[in-house]
Design a protein around this nucleic acid. Structure first.
Length: 120
DNA sequence: CAGGTGACCTCTG
DNA sequence: GCAGAGGCCACCT
């Protein structure tokens, strides 16, 4: 007997899947992730998923940034430096706690595929 | 039940 | 660049 819930996986697991889909070397914002999970406006829920994420969750949490490309943690804190370190390890440039989204943004990557920009 | 909080976002000035 | 307001909603007091 099917129920409608079979087609309504809980939001948090969908969000987790989206985060796992962020390519290495790319970053995505909370709002972007929520939107891609079919949950526009639910950026805060993405934050909760990451907060609840456990070590064994295997989520690339370091690839999630704020909408302006800044790391969500307070500068100079341990988590902040850890995220910055992990990003650098993937070749993502972090300057003053900020990433150039035009260079490493996931959405930008999609645009690159669809638009097939000419070499400059 | 009401109020505050939070790994957030967008708009306005 | 910064500040305020409104939106979002799960979770805790």
């Amino acid at each position: 007997m099917m129920s409608v819930d079979d087609d309504a996986p809980d939001a948090q697991s969908v969000i987790a899947d989206v985060i796992r889909a962020i390519p290495r070397g790319c970053v995505a914002s909370y709002g972007e992730i929520a939107a891609r999970a079919g949950l526009p406006g639910r950026a805060r829920l993405v934050g909760k998923v990451l907060r609840d994420a456990r070590a064994g969750a295997r989520l690339p949490w370091h690839r999630v940034l704020r909408a302006d490309g800044r790391i969500a943690f307070e500068p100079r804190t341990a988590p902040f430096r850890e995220q910055q370190r992990r990003l650098a390890a993937e070749g993502v440039v972090v300057v003053k706690g900020r990433v150039d989204l035009a260079r490493h943004g996931w959405q930008r990557d999609l645009d690159a595929e669809l638009w097939a920009p000419p070499p400059f």
